[in-house]
């Protein structure tokens, strides 16, 4: 069920069927991990999308060979339940500047928005957009909101926001078109720390509400790592 596309002599892409699913997420995470082990020196960069894995090598590769190896890896894939994953609980102060507008548009009370946002588990599909930005799957459809037509010039680091069918956390201050519903004091990306991020593809994220005066408790911290069974 996987195919390969040769982008350049040293760049190939392993492709799954075009859909967003946790099944593909965990197959892809497994293939990525094993390919990195298989090519410890030549595979320099492995970047995931929702249904594809871009592989950047130090030297030209035979894509058929990589496809064969990837298929062999997948034939030994034991399924999602056997994948090691962790749960991270992220404190959020739901005081975002777009929260009231969202409540009006969606005809949902602010309390209901907070409940819907903080009562589900999200999967980390991959990192993209900005260094340390998580692509999370699992947003309740009731909260899906089209992105702003005119992006804001500045969205603060730590902003928790909704854009389209996704929710995410801005790891650094940047322009952005998502609706800000809250703020987390947790550090998402710190290039001076190794590793610079705490979560891995396939890990689970849950949000829990905190009061504004509790922000300082978590300031600059990373969340507690919980083994997820």
């Amino acid at each position: 069920m996987i195919e390969i596309f040769q982008i350049a002599p040293h760049i190939v892409e392993v492709q799954w069927p075009k859909e967003i699913s946790t099944e593909i997420l965990y197959q892809k995470a497994h293939v990525k991990k094993k390919l990195i082990e298989h090519y410890p020196h030549t595979l320099l960069r492995a970047v995931s999308g929702f249904h594809n894995l871009g592989l950047f090598f130090a030297e030209p590769q035979n894509s058929k060979e990589i496809l064969t190896i990837s298929r062999n890896i997948l034939s030994n894939y034991a399924g999602e339940s056997k994948m090691e994953k962790h749960l991270w609980k992220i404190p959020v102060c739901y005081n975002g500047k777009d929260l009231e507008k969202l409540s009006e548009w969606k005809n949902l009370s602010i309390i209901e928005i907070i409940r819907l946002h903080s009562s589900v588990s999200y999967h980390i599909h991959f990192y993209g957009f900005l260094p340390g930005f998580l692509y999370l799957g699992g947003l309740d459809e009731k909260l899906a909101t089209a992105r702003k037509t005119n992006p804001e010039r500045e969205i603060k680091a730590g902003s928790v926001a909704i854009g389209g069918r996704q929710t995410g956390i801005y790891p650094s201050t940047s322009p952005g078109g998502w609706h800000v519903i809250g703020q987390t004091p947790i550090t998402m990306f710190d290039p001076t720390r190794s590793p610079a991020v705490w979560g891995n593809e396939g890990d689970i994220i849950e949000f829990f509400p905190i009061e504004f005066n509790e922000m300082a408790l978590y300031e600059g911290k990373i969340p507690e790592k919980i083994k997820y069974a």
Partner: peptide, 27 residues
């Protein structure tokens, strides 16, 4: 669906604009 990109890729927007991605492009 959101996919990996590398410097050197040419993207095509729905409006027909081509964009050559360079070194500081998102990933």
């Amino acid at each position: 669906l959101t996919s990996p990109i590398f410097p050197g890729m040419v993207q095509l927007t729905p409006g027909g604009k081509m964009i050559l991605l360079l070194m500081e492009a998102q990933i």
